[in-house]
Structures are given as structure tokens and as C-alpha cells.
């Protein structure tokens, strides 16, 4: 097996792909919270992706083809090798017993949530998961989700699976029902994390969000990933990606994540 070889590629119901990649050096050192920078081919962009599973030999990632570079990656097949995989980057989660941890995941955000649930389960936390998506097809990784949760709540925008409505509705319902929640972890689209964060602030529940900023090196060298955190500048790649949601200026982040929108490639060409 060659380094960075794709051992397995699987299409998920939402159109995302799961890749199992051979790379013992990365795999051995990985833990929940870590991500890798992936280079599909020579000359490709450097793309940050969360490490979902890790063993002694391989890691898995789940990737959603939303733009040129993520699509380019999804075209790779089993036995192909990535041009480069660098990591594990970012801070590992601090694994301890909080009590009850509520995970609020949006769409593909379930992939980075899985390793965290797995590790937090090991430290005897009660795990509740709210997974929201557009429709039933966009609810992925159910088997894994079931495995690590004590309470697994699905909600969809169109009601085709689970409850109808937004994750924040389900979250409110849960908290109002009297469930004591000690910690919240939210991963998904920025706008969702912003609303989750606003809501949890109202209930004064400490909340961690995983920041998917635009990155280049992933080692603290460029500042592309910088965020406004409690009025200070922090780098999501080294100070995060999991950070205290209540200290993040989401509005700045939303603007910065759209900063290259005008240059998005369509089929490898300028629009």
C-alpha cells in the first residue's frame, strides 16, 4: 500500500464521499478535533478536511463536493493516491467528563462530530445528538451516530425524516423539556453554528463551534484562517478549529468565508 492511497471510496446518500486513506504517520497521531490539509493533484488547492476515523494505518474523511477543489477530490478513485496529505492539524479535543454533551450537527457537519462523540463516550458522558439536514437523503452516517448516542434526534427542513424544522427548534425543545445540558458542540454551516451559539448563550450553556475558515498552510504561517475571538485575532488552524462559540464574531467569519466567491471556478474555468 502506498502512502496516501485511497483504500476505499463510498458514495453517501447526500452525494458526499467517504474516503479511507492509507497514511500511518497521520493516522497514528490523529485524535478527535484534528483535520488534514489535502492536495488532490500537483497544482491543486490545499483543502482542509476533518479526520473522521483514525486507526494505526489509515484515516477516513467525508467530503462534500461543493466547489471546484472538493469536486476534484471526489473524482479520485480507489487505488489513486492524493498528491499530499498533511496533518493531523489543529487542537485535539480536551476529553473529560462534562456530564451531558449535546452535539448539534448540520448536514455534512456530522462527519467531524462522530470522532468527538466516540471519544466523549469513552469518558462516560451522556451524548445527545441533534442532526439537521435539508431532507432525509442528507441525513448520513446514521449507523455510526446511533452507536455513540444516548439520544439521537433527527430533524429535516421538509419533514421527510425525523422532526420537521430547524436544529435550533429541536434544541430549544430539548432544553425546555428539562434536560440538563452541560456542554454543547456544534459543527455545520457557519450560519447554523451562529444561531446555535446565539441560542445556547441565552441558556448560558458553554458551547464549542468548529470553524471552517478558509485555510492555506494550516500551521499558523499565513493568517488566512484568522477569526475575531473575544476582540483578539486568533488562527483557527492552530488555536482551533474547535473554539468557544460565544467568543467568535460570526459575522466577520461569514464575510471572510465568502471572500473568494467572485473567483469560484466552474469546470476549472473562470465564470
Amino acid at each position: 500500500m502506498k502512502k496516501n492511497e485511497i483504500m476505499e471510496k463510498k458514495k453517501l446518500s447526500d452525494g458526499s464521499y467517504l474516503f479511507k486513506i492509507y497514511n500511518p504517520e497521520v493516522a497514528k497521531n490523529s485524535y478527535a478535533g484534528n483535520f488534514v490539509i489535502v492536495i488532490a493533484k500537483d497544482g491543486s488547492e490545499r483543502i482542509p478536511l476533518t479526520i473522521m476515523e483514525y486507526t494505526d494505518e489509515w484515516i477516513s474523511i467525508v467530503i462534500q463536493p461543493i466547489g471546484f477543489s472538493t469536486k476534484e477530490i471526489c473524482f479520485l478513485e480507489e487505488k489513486d493516491c492524493f498528491s499530499g496529505i498533511m496533518g493531523p492539524l489543529g487542537k485535539k479535543i480536551e476529553n473529560k467528563k462534562y456530564g451531558t454533551i449535546l452535539f448539534v450537527a448540520g448536514g455534512i457537519g456530522i462527519a467531524p462530530v462522530i470522532p468527538q462523540m466516540m471519544e466523549f463516550k469513552k469518558t462516560d458522558n451522556k451524548i445527545i445528538l441533534i442532526h439537521g439536514a435539508r431532507d432525509g437523503e442528507h441525513i448520513i452516517l446514521e449507523k455510526e451516530s446511533k452507536k455513540y448516542t444516548d439520544n439521537y434526534i433527527i430533524c429535516t427542513d421538509d419533514g421527510s425524516m425525523g422532526k420537521k424544522g430547524l436544529v435550533t427548534n429541536a434544541m430549544k425543545e430539548l432544553i425546555e423539556s428539562g434536560e440538563k445540558i452541560d456542554h454543547i458542540v456544534t459543527i455545520g454551516p457557519l450560519i447554523m453554528m451562529k444561531f446555535v451559539s446565539d441560542l445556547s448563550k441565552n441558556y448560558s450553556i458553554p458551547t464549542t463551534a468548529s470553524l471552517n475558515t478558509i485555510m492555506l498552510d494550516g500551521t499558523g504561517m499565513c493568517g488566512s484562517c484568522r477569526v475575531e475571538y473575544d476582540g483578539e485575532v486568533k488562527f483557527a488552524c492552530v488555536d482551533g478549529p474547535d473554539m468557544d462559540a460565544h467568543k467568535i464574531n460570526f459575522d466577520v467569519l461569514l464575510r471572510r468565508n465568502a471572500r473568494f466567491k467572485s473567483l469560484e471556478l466552474v469546470n476549472g474555468e473562470k465564470k
Binding site: 497544482g43 490545499r46 498552510d217 504561517m221 471572510r256 471556478l265 476549472g268 473562470k270
Partner: peptide, 27 residues
């Protein structure tokens, strides 16, 4: 924090290491 405010490292890395001056040939 503005979108087009870069550190020199980011700016130069995009251009030199990742060849943004040859965009879209380089991505």
C-alpha cells in the same frame, strides 16, 4: 479582519507557492 486585508505571508504564499498569478491554471 476585512476580506482583502492580507498578511504578507498569505499574499505571497498564494502567489508564489500556490501560483495564484497563474489562476485558473493553478487553482
Amino acid at each position: 479582519e476585512l476580506n482583502t486585508c492580507y498578511s504578507a505571508n498569505e499574499f505571497l504564499t498564494r502567489i508564489n507557492l500556490l501560483k495564484a498569478y497563474k489562476f485558473p491554471e493553478f487553482k
